[in-house]
C-alpha cells in the first residue's frame, strides 16, 4: 500500500502551566490518543464543538507545538526526524483562525517576499509567484495596501494566498471563513475547490459550516480531544442527528426537509445541502 501523506499515530498533548516559582506545573491533557491518516491529494474536513481541541491539533500538525506523546509522519518521515526542519513549514502550511497573528510585514507583498526569502526563493521566482497568485485569486486591489487599512475579511483572503504561495503538500485551514461575509466565504470556498482540483495539495479544513465541509471527501469528528468518527461527507452532512451531535450550524435546506417530514412523513430526497437540490426535491414530490 502506498504511504499516506500524513499519518498521525496515538497523538497526545498536554498543556503545562507554571503555578509558582517552585516550578510546580499543572498539566492538562487536551488531545488524547488521536490517530488518523490523510492521503495524497485528499480533502479532509475536521469538525468539533468549541473547545474540542481542533486548533491545538492543527498547531501540532504544523509543529508550532510538540506532542507529549505519539508520532506524526509526513510521507513516512517522523516530524522529529525531518531535515532540514524548516522545510516542514513549507510542506505543511497553516492558515490561522486569527489572521492578525499570521502577518509579519506591513503589506502582502512585503510579508510574502519576506516569508518566501526565508525558504530560499530567489527574488525573480518570488515576483513571479506573486503575479501568478494575484491573478489566480483576483487580489490586485489588495496586495499593496497596508494590512491595517484592510478589513478582517480582506486580510483573511491574503492569509490564504500566502499559505498557498509556498506550494505546500498539506494545507491546513483553521476556520478560514469564520470572519468572512458570505460573498468572500463563497470566494474562498470556490478557491479551495479550485486549488484542490488544479494542484496536488491535500487539504485539511476545520469548519463549523456544513456547506463548506461539503467540499471535503471525508470528515473527521473531534470531541473533547478524542477522535470520535470518520465519515464519508454526504453520509454525514445529510444526517441531522450527526450534525446536531457535533454542534454544526444547521443548514436551512436540511431544516426544511426535517420539518416537512415531521408534518407529512414524506422525505424530500436531497442529494446534497444545496438549495438547488432542495428545490428539485420539492418539485419531484409535488409533481
Amino acid at each position: 500500500m502506498a504511504t499516506p501523506l500524513l499519518e498521525v499515530k496515538q497523538l497526545q498533548y498536554s498543556s503545562e502551566e507554571l503555578i509558582d516559582l517552585n516550578l510546580t506545573v499543572k498539566k492538562k491533557e487536551i488531545i488524547h490518543q488521536v490517530s488518523f491518516t490523510i492521503n495524497h491529494h485528499e480533502f479532509v474536513g475536521l469538525i468539533g464543538p468549541n473547545g474540542s481541541g481542533k486548533t491545538t491539533l492543527s498547531k501540532l500538525l504544523t509543529k508550532i507545538i510538540e506532542p507529549s506523546n505519539g508520532h506524526i509522519l509526513l510521507d513516512g518521515v517522523d516530524y522529529v526526524d525531518f531535515r532540514p526542519s524548516w522545510k516542514l513549514h513549507q510542506e505543511v502550511s497553516l492558515v490561522f483562525q486569527q489572521v492578525s497573528s499570521q502577518f509579519v510585514g506591513t503589506d502582502f507583498i512585503t510579508d510574502l517576499t519576506l516569508s518566501l526569502k526565508n525558504f530560499g526563493w530567489s527574488i525573480a521566482k518570488i515576483e513571479n509567484r506573486i503575479k501568478q497568485l494575484t491573478k489566480q485569486l483576483h487580489l490586485k486591489s489588495l496586495i499593496k495596501r497596508p494590512f491595517r487599512e484592510l478589513s478582517g475579511g480582506q486580510q483573511q483572503l491574503l492569509a490564504i494566498a500566502e499559505a498557498i504561495a509556498v506550494k505546500p503538500k498539506l494545507l491546513i485551514l483553521d476556520e478560514p471563513t469564520a470572519q468572512l461575509d458570505s460573498e468572500n466565504t463563497f470566494l474562498v470556498d470556490q478557491l479551495l475547490a479550485k486549488i484542490f482540483k488544479e494542484e496536488s495539495t491535500s487539504i485539511l479544513l476545520i469548519s463549523h459550516k456544513p456547506i463548506e465541509l461539503s467540499l471535503a471527501q471525508k470528515l473527521l469528528t473531534l470531541n473533547q480531544g478524542t477522535l470520535t468518527g470518520n465519515y464519508s461527507t454526504n453520509e454525514f452532512l445529510l444526517d441531522s442527528s450527526l450534525l446536531k451531535e457535533n454542534q454544526l450550524i444547521f443548514p436551512a435546506t436540511l431544516a426544511i426537509r426535517d420539518y416537512v417530514y415531521e408534518l407529512t412523513k414524506v422525505q424530500l430526497p436531497l442529494v446534497d445541502l444545496s438549495i438547488k437540490s432542495l428545490i428539485k426535491a420539492i418539485e419531484t414530490v409535488l409533481c
Binding site: 431544516a255 420539518y259 416537512v260 408534518l263 407529512t264 414524506v266 414530490v285 409535488l286
Partner: peptide
C-alpha cells in the same frame, strides 16, 4: 424562516395526497 416554508410545502404535499 425554514419552519414557515416547510409548513406551506407540507400543506401542498397533504393536498396532493
Amino acid at each position: 424562516n425554514s419552519e414557515k416554508i416547510a409548513q406551506i410545502i407540507a400543506t401542498l404535499i397533504n393536498q396532493k395526497k
